[in-house]
């Protein structure tokens, strides 16, 4: 079976400006042959392949390169080097709030958000009422989107996106603020997706969410693939990596005396009998190892 996705040695470099760029600074830098930017390699040497129907969880810490990798897969960004071969263009949901217009009604936003995600009005029109009802906001269809709660907007977004029929779907941390009721609805949707044979790539900081739908995971660490394998194995290793993280302590409350952190007392250990002192030290015996 041919791959649904194949990445070979993919790298992505961003050029980060040192300073606010103005015309004069740019011209001066050009004349002096200076650069106003420095390189930031968000991804390096990323290679993997997905078979049709694979359900991949991308995990990694904040800033590790997960979203950049998803944007490369979605064709939003181009790789700096390497090759990405896709059997079919994916449909991606990166945010459940981007693609709406706050001042428009819920009913109008269904068509706008749908069009931004490749769903035409002709296709959405017969499903319009169901989409809003599925989001649980039928009574709000004439309200402006700005009057909805964040959770309601997320429900609407996912309800619209559920109309997509592409065989390769990408989800980037999309279930953040939904309530338990919609989480159950969304769970039904993702389970159905997982059983439908579609290729899925998902990111989330919730391991339980990923565990429910993914059978494989890739751990991205500092822009590189740290581990690629069965979901449970990768997640175990990934979770272990947090054990060495130092805890973040809150600052002292205003007015409170600063807490003095005293160094820990040395462990009391039974004294070791001193070896008998040599009567004459041999010259050059500086070895202090025991």
């Amino acid at each position: 079976m041919s791959d649904a996705v194949r990445l070979v040695n993919v790298a992505k470099r961003f050029m980060i400006p040192h300073t606010q760029r103005t015309t004069l600074r740019v011209l001066r830098a050009l004349l002096r042959r200076e650069t106003l930017r420095h390189e930031l390699w968000a991804l390096e040497d990323v290679s993997f392949a997905l078979a049709p129907g694979d359900r991949l969880a991308l995990v990694g810490r904040n800033g590790s390169g997960k979203t950049t990798l998803l944007r490369l897969l979605a064709g939003i960004l181009a790789p700096t080097s390497g090759t990405i071969v896709l059997a079919e263009a994916p449909r991606a949901l990166f945010s459940t709030t981007i693609g709406f217009m706050q001042e428009l009604s819920v009913a109008d936003n269904v068509y706008l958000f749908g069009a931004i995600h490749g769903l035409t009005r002709r296709r959405l029109e017969p499903r319009h009422a169901d989409i809003i009802a599925r989001a649980g906001i039928a009574h709000l269809q004439h309200a402006a989107l700005k009057d909805l709660s964040m959770g309601q907007v997320q429900r609407l977004a996912l309800s619209i996106f559920a109309e997509t029929s592409e065989r390769f779907l990408i989800f980037d941390e999309v279930l953040g603020n939904v309530d338990r009721g919609f989480a159950r609805t969304a769970d039904g949707y993702f389970r159905a997706l997982a059983q439908s044979g579609r290729t899925l790539v998902m990111t989330s900081h919730d391991p339980a969410f990923l565990a429910a739908y993914c059978d494989r995971a890739i751990w991205i660490d500092a822009g590189r693939v740290r581990l690629d394998g069965a979901f449970d194995d990768v997640m175990r290793a990934y979770e272990q990596s947090f054990e060495d993280d130092p805890p973040v302590q809150p600052a002292p409350a205003n007015g409170a005396a600063p807490e003095v952190v005293e160094p820990p007392l040395p462990q009391m250990e039974p004294a070791v009998p001193a070896p008998p002192a040599p009567t004459t030290a041999p010259a050059g015996s500086g070895d202090t190892s025991r």
Binding site: E103, Y111, A115, R121
Partner: peptide
């Protein structure tokens, strides 16, 4: 990236213009 001249993109163009009108 979707095709610039495809049906989806034409529909997107219409929806963006329509939304801009409704927004103002």
């Amino acid at each position: 990236m979707r095709s610039f001249f495809g049906e989806e993109n034409r529909a997107l163009f219409v929806e963006l213009v329509r939304a801009a009108f409704k927004h103002t």
